[in-house]
Design a protein around this nucleic acid. Sequence first.
DNA 1: AATAAAAATTAGGCAAGCCTAATATTACTG
DNA 2: CAGTAATATTAGGCTTGCCTAATTTTTATT
Lengths: 218, 218
Amino acid sequence: MHSSAEENYLKAIYKLQEANGEMVATSALAQVLGIHMASVTDMLKKMSNKKLVAYQKSKGFKLTEKGRLAAISIIRKHRLWEVFLVDKLRFRWDEVHEIAEQLEHIHSQELIDKLDAYLDFPKADPHGDPIPDAKGIFAINKSVLLASLAPGSQGKFTGVTDHSSAFLNYLDKIGLSLGDSVKVKEVEEFDKNYTLLLKGKKSVVVSFKVANSLLISE
Amino acid sequence: MHSSAEENYLKAIYKLQEANGEMVATSALAQVLGIHMASVTDMLKKMSNKKLVAYQKSKGFKLTEKGRLAAISIIRKHRLWEVFLVDKLRFRWDEVHEIAEQLEHIHSQELIDKLDAYLDFPKADPHGDPIPDAKGIFAINKSVLLASLAPGSQGKFTGVTDHSSAFLNYLDKIGLSLGDSVKVKEVEEFDKNYTLLLKGKKSVVVSFKVANSLLISE
DNA sequence: AATAAAAATTAGGCAAGCCTAATATTACTG
DNA sequence: CAGTAATATTAGGCTTGCCTAATTTTTATT
Ligand SMILES: [Mn+2]
Ligand SMILES: [Mn+2]
Ligand SMILES: [Mn+2]
Ligand SMILES: [Mn+2]
């Protein structure tokens, strides 16, 4: 089995590859992990020996298929635990990430299978992030950023790209929850503020920064 | 916060103190942890510096009050998670220990509070072991070994002293579950076999070894 | 192409937790 | 009480995962 440190590297590399294309740089990984570059180089050599990453000295690296599957498995565990924390234990959606960071490292296939069943095989976590199935397959998700929509467009709020407590609490404050339908009423050309029509006809004005962190589907 | 290794030491020391009186020997701890004595001595010096144990070189050691409270907190987590695994996720009672060994090291007071509430504040784990409350207080438990009962005695099966899968599966096989009432019909003097009357009038003969691993209350 | 800046690696160290082998202490036994 | 056996500690090492400082490699700029 992999150590928690290795699992955190795998997850971080996976997410960097998702966001910025195939090859990952030592500096980028060091930055997201909050670890010095020398340490990252160290660890990558070890993970390369274990065939978890394909490492090209001074050039960058990427996950092997083995590493990719391992990473997806950690992400699956993280998101399932987040669902458990919110749906069953009644945590708020901005409180669960740190705890899930620990729970994702519990090693037991049986446990995660039973947890998945207990939660009724959820397809997304409390932040709208997709949960890969037991085989590591993500349901295809065709959501777009609200900031990319023209006035008059309408859709369902299905995810966030900013997972910070500050942002999540802001959404709570304006009364926007996952699954709500949202309509773009107006986009102010000058400052790119978005006027949205929420459910119950409530109208709210949000900044581009906010519009650019909301995922809309349908 | 304490490391998982420290927490395992604390729990093991606590249990040894419970079982064999105040002072614990290096060899005993090494044995239950499956670790060499030299390593135990090492760790104890560190834990002594942290005021978790009172350590007297070559004489033995015991938990400080700080250490005792920390140990009880781990035991509380372990047993609550075991309840979760059996009651919610439908694990069998012989499958949960190893997973709980991992889950008990998750650090979050909020989590354990909410889990406790979610499970409806259970007083005992799936093996009948008492769960200390949030303040570290155990409900007083006046159970006795079935092997100490005279023929004709009756009571409720409320715990085991042998937690092995082999034993737990044996109990499943003879149809004895926690909470069942049990009557001692006869004790064979020659081999100390116990003839028990289980619920539904089923009669079963068990060895002294078994009778001596069953806790009876009331 | 030369030079400077940025990125990456190497070298040397450290703390946590473990190990083996050697030594010291304590307990038991004749 | 001496002698041995059992317990315990010390000394020296190892792996993991991190660090700082020094050096090398790559990239960008003139
Ligand atoms: Mn998260
Ligand atoms: Mn999430
Ligand atoms: Mn247990
Ligand atoms: Mn138990």
